[in-house]
Design a binder for these strands. Structure first.
Lengths: 232, 232
DNA sequence: TGTACATCAGTGAACGCGCGTTCACTGATGTAC
DNA sequence: TGTACATCAGTGAACGCGCGTTCACTGATGTAC
């Protein structure tokens, strides 16, 4: 009976979700290294070996968490972007920057899982890639659309990218379509600055140095916007 | 006898060094989480409890490693800066950037220990601070000296830092002495971009995207130099 | 609709492993008179 | 210079802990005729 098979499958899907939820909560309190199948099973009220009906190994569970986290971040970023008038490119950039930072502050361990030190012994499979690039695509489109709206006013004189970088520019153009190499690398630089800041803030590098972090971040991202040629 | 006491102490200092050396090597292969007192003891040919004659706990050993790593990085950066003509501010900036990146690539796990996700359960004591800020001080002095040599040509128009950031600017001025707030926050932004890039590169975010990383990094840091107003 | 069989979820015990830390101890090295 | 004592380094056993994964099993749920 298809209906009953679906019933069993529904339970299965629900329990799978419950496992990842518990795992995510453990991740949030213990960090990636502290994620333990046995602890998850304990909290589920199951015996530890039962987890293996749902995930083939600890790494598989970790991969599921990583993909979920990338998607959560990606969705937040997409919504932040979508909430802005299309032609307000600076506003969109700032909204995206703050979305990344806010999400990271709300989910520090998940952020660390995505952008911190690699988990030792864990090798991310290819399946994470589509989820991993959602935020990058959002930024890319802001820049690309700004360029085509002639709204990019490339800032002060700076050296053009050396020709040897042309191949890499081609690869990145998948994310920032139809723009010259110079825009590509300004975008990459801006992008690294976002995560560089957020990582510094989250991993403690700003302790005893910068207190009004939201304001400072906002200002820093405006400087980066100017570097990229984004003006209101 | 002072001489013989010194003899014992010399052995002690040597063994302490040997322990940290072995621990550093293990860190390099296993990562911070894989650092184990028992493994260190095994490699020393000692029983595990003997380590406690030299370090009160695993965390103490970790702290020693962190301080050593900060000092190693700091020294590299200082030397890179010192190798440049004093008035070549752009050259000094680029030298420092590459020194950070080169060191990180040569010591990925140590870099991760300093700038990656915090080690769960480990709380860095205050003793690490002097070592931790050596590189920051180098950058600060480049900017400060450039400013006083009137060699900073603040790039394109960008909003000034909001007044509410003045207190934070005062704190950071310990590293970038006697410069206006605007220079401070351009410096902080530049600094985060350096580590943002290096972390992206080291932690795998550039995989399948950017191949000629040294060149791209160099270009990116030149863009940041222009943002900060550093020109040759 | 009823029965025989197959699939699947969850159990409980076990394997083999490694870890940090404590503690009472032996011997060697250094110190004081 | 020689002896009695104190300091220190290193030993070996133990405590108590948690982990991922495997495997033979029971019972319930679903399937086919």
């Amino acid at each position: 009976m298809t209906a009953s098979r679906t019933a069993r499958e529904r339970v299965r899907a629900e329990l799978t979700r419950e496992i990842t939820d518990i795992a995510r909560r453990q991740l949030a309190t213990e960090g990636a290294g502290g994620l333990s199948l046995r602890a998850v099973a304990r909290e589920m009220g199951m015996v530890s070996s039962a987890i293996y009906r749902y995930f083939a190994s600890r790494d598989d569970l970790l991969t599921a968490l990583i993909i979920d986290a990338y998607n959560a971040l990606g969705e937040t970023v997409e919504q932040a972007d979508a909430g802005c008038p299309r032609e307000d490119f600076l506003g969109r950039w700032l909204a995206v920057c703050h979305a990344v930072r806010d999400w990271a502050l709300a989910h520090p361990h998940e952020y660390a899982l995505l952008y911190g030190s690699p988990v030792p012994g864990y090798q991310a499979p290819q399946d994470t890639i589509p989820a991993a690039v959602r935020d990058t695509i959002v930024l890319g489109h802001i820049l690309s659309e700004a360029h085509h709206a002639a709204a990019l006013t490339p800032a002060q004189p700076a050296p053009p990218p050396p020709p040897s970088l042309h191949a890499d520019a081609d690869t990145v153009r998948a994310f920032i379509p139809d723009v010259p190499d110079d825009v590509i690398f300004r975008g990459v630089t801006g992008w690294t600055a976002v995560y560089g800041w957020v990582s510094f803030e989250l991993f403690g590098q700003f302790n005893n140095a910068i207190e009004d972090r939201r304001t400072a971040f906002d200002h820093s991202m405006r400087l980066m916007a100017a570097m990229m040629g984004l003006a209101r």
